[in-house]
Amino acid sequence: MDEPTTGGPEPARARELLAAERAGALERIESLRRQLTSVREVSTWTGTDDEHDPEGATIAYERAQLHGLLTDATRELEALDRAAIRVREGSYGRCEGCGDDIAPARLEALPAASTCITCATRR
């Protein structure tokens, strides 16, 4: 039987939350990659010149936006994977900043959270 970790949900619940968030992040990453590929293909076939074509700036903006969203989703996935390691090690639910417990409600809302609200607001 799993023993509860300090400050957070029981390990089984934490794994469940993290798995659900991870699945969502993977889905977003795949979708963003498809969209980015589509934008690249469109810009290749249209032969637009980003600098001189009125549509070029829009395509460049969309490409940059998608790239930024993909970067964010990848970082989220990495944070979720680090949280899963903390669950396995028994340190999930403990703030990496001050060592205090992370509020269970915070972990329910943000399963990958590694800091308490106090430490998160100090950044």
Rank of each mutant, 00 (worst) to 15 (best):
I59P: 04
L110H: 13
A112C: 02
G99R: 01
D101G: 08
Y92D: 06
D72G: 00
L107W: 01
E78H: 04
G99S: 11
L69A: 14
G99L: 06
D53H: 11
T71H: 10
A109E: 12
D72F: 09
L80C: 10
C98D: 11
G97F: 03
A113S: 13
D53W: 02
Q65K: 12
D72S: 08
E76R: 14
L66K: 07
H67E: 15
A109G: 01
A103R: 04
L107C: 04
G56D: 04
L69H: 12
V87M: 11
L70N: 02
L110A: 03
R86E: 05
D100R: 10
T74A: 14
E76G: 04
R63Q: 14
L107R: 07
E62M: 09
P54K: 10
P111M: 10
R63V: 02
A113G: 09
L70V: 02
L110V: 13
G56P: 07
R63L: 03
A112L: 10
P54R: 06
Q65G: 04
T58F: 11
I85A: 10
D81F: 01
I85L: 15
L66F: 00
C95W: 15
A60G: 03
G90H: 09
Y61Q: 07
I59T: 07
L66G: 12
H67S: 14
G97Q: 06
P104M: 03
I59C: 05
R82I: 02
Y61D: 08
G93K: 06
G68L: 15
G90P: 03
V87K: 11
L66S: 07
G99D: 08
I85P: 01
G90F: 15
L80V: 07
E78S: 06
H67V: 07
L69E: 15
H67D: 12
P54L: 09
D81H: 08
P54A: 03
D72K: 03
D101Y: 00
T58L: 11
L80M: 10
G93T: 01
E89H: 05
R94E: 13
L69M: 15
D81Y: 04
R88S: 15
I59S: 13
D53I: 07
E76W: 05
S91K: 03
A105I: 12
R88C: 08
L110I: 14
